[in-house]
Design a protein around this nucleic acid. Structure first.
Lengths: 108, 108
DNA sequence: CACATCCATGGCAACATGGCCATGGAGGCA
DNA sequence: TGCCTCCATGGCCATGTTGCCATGGATGTG
C-alpha cells in the first residue's frame, strides 16, 4: 500500500468536519426526506436564522448539499446519497461502546 | 419518519468530530493495515509524541480504535470495519466538487 | 415607490481544539 | 536498586468554532 498524500487526508477531514455538529446532522437528516428552505430549517433547528445560514454554508462548501433559488426563498437539498449507510455503521460502534460500558458496570 | 432525539445527533457528531483531523485520518489508514504502537504512529505522523497520544485518546474515546498493552508498549488497532466504504463515498463528493469547479472555470 | 419577507454576512464574545514542552508513571533490564 | 524506553497528562498559547445581534441585499406585493 503506497502512502497517500497528506492532501487527501486534509480533503477528507474537511468533509468530516462539516459533519461534526449536531445541528448540521439534524439538517442533513431532514434534507434526506425532502428539500427545505432556510426558514423551515431554522424552525427545525431552533437557533437563530443567521446561525442556521452559516451551518448551511459549511455543508454547501463541503459539497454535501446543493441550493436552489425560487423567488425569495432558497431551497437546500441533499447532494450525497451515501450517508445513511455510514451512520448505520457509526450506530453499530456506539452500541458496541454501550455494551462494553455495561460489561464494566456488571463486573464491578 | 419520526423525529430523532437530539442526543442521537450529538453522539453521531462526536464520532464525526473524531474523524475531523488529517493526522487522525492518517493514523486510521495505517491501522487499517495492522496494529501499531504509539512510537510507530509518532514516526508516521511526524508530530510530538504527546500530540499523537492525544489524537489516539480522541479516537479511543469515540470507540473507533482499541488499545492493547504488551510490555512497555501499547498497540492500537482499528475497531471499525466500515470506514473504507464511507471514504469512497466522500471521495465521490470531492471528485464531484472538482468537476463543478472545472465547469465554472470553462464557462468564464 | 414603500414595505414586507427571506436570506447572507460581518462583528464580537465564549468556548473548544491542536500544538509543543515538561513531567511522571509503568514496565523491562542489568 | 538504578536506568532506560514507552506512553499519558497537565500547562500554556495560538487558532478555530459557535452562538447571537445587527445590518443589508434581493425579491415579491400593494
Amino acid at each position: 500500500m503506497k502512502p497517500k498524500p497528506r492532501q487527501l487526508y486534509e480533503a477528507r477531514a474537511k468533509v468530516a468536519k462539516a459533519l461534526a455538529h449536531p445541528s448540521r446532522l439534524l439538517i442533513l437528516d431532514a434534507l434526506a426526506e425532502k428539500e427545505m428552505c432556510v426558514c423551515d430549517l431554522t424552525d427545525l433547528v431552533g437557533a437563530d436564522q443567521s446561525t442556521v445560514s452559516k451551518h448551511l454554508a459549511v455543508l454547501k462548501n463541503a459539497g454535501i448539499v446543493a441550493d436552489r433559488k425560487e423567488g425569495v426563498m432558497i431551497f437546500y437539498s441533499l447532494k450525497v446519497a451515501c450517508l445513511r449507510g455510514f451512520w448505520s455503521c457509526v450506530e453499530g460502534v456506539l452500541k458496541q461502546n454501550l455494551k462494553e460500558q455495561q460489561a464494566v458496570m456488571r463486573s464491578s
